[in-house]
């Protein structure tokens, strides 16, 4: 009996300890970045241009770049992703082909992001001749986001009971009107949660934009879509590996990392809030 108790105690320690380690990982990451990043954070940091060879000043162009980039990603991936999900769930007949398509889309979500970068380079930069630009990069991230948006939207649509659709159709309403007035409003919070989480991923991605348009430095702001751009995640990569005065810019790198993580967390919190509100309403 004594032996069993010891085994029990030991197992409990291993399981609890493992969980503690996982939690500690997050704790260490956040503590290290925030404790070293916050001292350099200021209004000036987020609202001014880098100066003196990027050793001083702020990260305004990188913030604007990331926002514009995510905006293009949204404009491309949300309408197409939602439309594709609606087609798959509402119009397409459930046959083998649809199932194959669905499985392919799910697996595309697991394709390494750098491969999307290659595709973006071949398609947008070269074939469509957009050059290295914020448009090419935004569309590339849009492609990366599509599988996630399609899958989460479909899941949200699936949760709407068929009885609702049938009831609407029985009233003589057309299928599109059913989708527009009955299905979509009900599924909206679910879709929104998926979209926001996907965009928070896209905003933090670096690999797909590496060769589709991101730049070290740009000396002004322009909203033109064929412009190269600065982005927060790439700025962090550049400050921590490419800059020539690496020690001098470490505090800036930490502060950039803090801003990036805060931005991503903010998006996640919004998504959780939407999901939470939706749950409590049901």
């Amino acid at each position: 009996m004594e032996k069993k108790r010891i085994i029990g105690l030991f197992s409990g320690l291993v399981l609890g300890g493992s969980t503690l380690i996982v939690v500690l990982f997050l704790g260490i990451i956040l503590w290290d970045i925030f404790s070293k990043g916050f001292p350099s954070l200021s209004w000036n940091f987020v609202s001014s241009f880098p100066t003196n060879g990027m050793t001083q000043g702020g990260i305004l162009p990188a913030i604007i770049g990331t926002v514009l980039l995510t905006f293009i990603t949204t404009l491309f991936s949300v309408p197409f992703g939602v439309a594709c999900a609606i087609y798959l769930n509402e119009y397409a007949r459930p046959n083998t082909l649809t199932n194959v398509i669905r499985a392919s889309i799910r697996n595309l979500a697991g394709v390494p992001s750098i491969i999307y970068g290659l595709f973006g380079l071949a398609l947008f930069v070269q074939a469509l001749n957009f050059g290295t630009s914020i448009l090419s990069a935004g569309l590339t991230l849009g492609l990366l986001s599509l599988p996630y948006i399609i899958t989460t939207t479909e899941e949200a649509l699936k949760r709407i009971p068929n009885s609702l659709r049938e009831a609407a159709l029985a009233l003589g309403v057309t299928q599109f009107e059913t989708i527009k007035d009955v299905v979509l409003p009900k599924a909206l919070p679910g879709i929104l949660t998926g979209v926001i989480l996907t965009l928070s991923r896209a905003a933090g991605e670096t690999a797909p934009i590496l060769f589709t348009g991101v730049a070290f430095f740009i000396n002004g702001i322009s909203a033109s879509p064929n412009q190269e751009f600065m982005a927060l995640p790439y700025h962090l990569y550049m400050l921590s590996t490419q800059h020539n005065e690496i020690e001098q810019v470490r505090p800036l790198a930490y502060a950039t990392a803090s801003v990036l993580i805060l931005l991503v967390f903010l998006l996640n919190i919004i998504a959780f809030y939407v999901r939470f509100k939706n749950r409590t309403q049901d």
Binding site: F25, L26, L236, A257, N268
Partner: peptide, 15 residues
Amino acid sequence: IEMLAAIPSVAIGFL
């Protein structure tokens, strides 16, 4: 645990 998943890979690389 979901927060851990949300941290961008470049920030992890930085660490």
